[in-house]
Design a protein around this nucleic acid. Sequence first.
DNA 1: CGACGTGTTGATTCCTGTCAATACTCGTGG
DNA 2: CCACGAGTATTGACAGGAATCAACACGTCG
Lengths: 255, 255
Amino acid sequence: MIQINGHRKMQNAYNVATQECADCPIRHRAVCARCEEDELAQLEEIKFYRNYEAGQTVIWSGDKMDFVASVVSGVATLTQTMEDGRRQMVGLLLPSDFVGRPGREGSPYDVVARTDLVMCCFRKRPFEDMMNRTPHIAQRLLQMTLDELDAAREWMLILGRKTAREKIASFMSIIARRDAVLSTGRMTSCTFDLPLTREAMADYLGLTLETVSRQVSALKRDDVIRLEGKRRVVVPDMGVLLEEAGDDCDGGLLV
Amino acid sequence: MIQINGHRKMQNAYNVATQECADCPIRHRAVCARCEEDELAQLEEIKFYRNYEAGQTVIWSGDKMDFVASVVSGVATLTQTMEDGRRQMVGLLLPSDFVGRPGREGSPYDVVARTDLVMCCFRKRPFEDMMNRTPHIAQRLLQMTLDELDAAREWMLILGRKTAREKIASFMSIIARRDAVLSTGRMTSCTFDLPLTREAMADYLGLTLETVSRQVSALKRDDVIRLEGKRRVVVPDMGVLLEEAGDDCDGGLLV
DNA sequence: CGACGTGTTGATTCCTGTCAATACTCGTGG
DNA sequence: CCACGAGTATTGACAGGAATCAACACGTCG
């Protein structure tokens, strides 16, 4: 059985005072992953950190963005809103994920910190300049964008074709998978914290918060999951959860 | 009133015999858009054309892809399928769109020609090599991938939060917009051909084909659209259609 | 003509949304 | 100390929209 750190408070152990890229927890997965020492030194000169509290809006939809950034620790979301208030989350930003688009002024989405959040920011213009002369950055950004596109497409299947129960199971599978990159070997059980409120999960999955609550309760009743408090989830058997998600069970964690 | 070419047969006017990139209809929008003359000459050496008939599968999910390609003319789709047969379209490929991912072996999606289709193909390895030494290609691919990601996110809002009627109206707005790049100035009415069957539209929108059919009929009954045959759509007032789509009406065509 | 692919329409079911009441936790302040 | 309110979560009753099952229309092609 593995045990994964919670998202809520304790995970922001990375101190902003720690300015060394070499010690950065996302050094090898973020947009800078492929950079050499000298390239890293250049990035180090134009970077700065920002902290946000859980609930704070990082960027308002339509606002001008004068920086791009990597999530160092914490969880943020991208959300789209219709005039009548209907909302759909369109991006879930976990540590190492990149925010902002080179070559574009504003953000079309609200970016909201869901937990306390540390971002490693670069002013947009210097970053764009550097990208143009540093293929390692552009290459890594392309790779990450393609990964995001794959994730978006998996998400589209969830939104378009899965039942409420399958949506919840799929979401939990995704969280488990992303949290478990540090996993050692194969295991069947797993514990993690939900990084989102029921309402945010509803925005993620195209449901109402009531339906989310009901389906979480149903999965608990059927012993697919167990709850410790409202947020901590224990999955006795990941295979069962993946089955409930409607995914190929030989995919995912058990490969 | 503008008149846009149909998708079905006539649009494949681009002859495969026409091998000159300079004459290529997608020269300025495809992955090669930023290439200089000499770069184009290099691409020209590794490219080859392939033709597919409507309905043909270009790539099977899971298959090894030994090439990447641009859509020259026609329409193709990316589709994901669950074990029990539920399907969700996750990509709509129109002329100039790019297929395939550098640095990956197989395709996770079925790629299907929805009309007769001409593709400009590059063997993967030579293309990747060229990408590594040609920033213009990598830059353009990044830009196109970011655009696709934006489209995917708009699509997620449609799938997650819109009603069946809004989904149909949104789809028609998207087709109208993508067809109308050649539009001159502002106009309110518009004519186009639906590039997909009712069933494929259902896969696109996360609906059943019956619901698609019903909602198309409803939009016709309410005079939001008119039909000429089953596929040709006349929109008397794009503003009304955009309203039905639930989008910001000051966006889209009327800016 | 009959088979097939495509599309339309109707009757019915059921999943999820909507509206509403209640519980729990955590601060704040009397 | 407890009352109070805000934010979060659970659960119930009910309604509605889309899925399902089914019949039928239309055009093409053998």
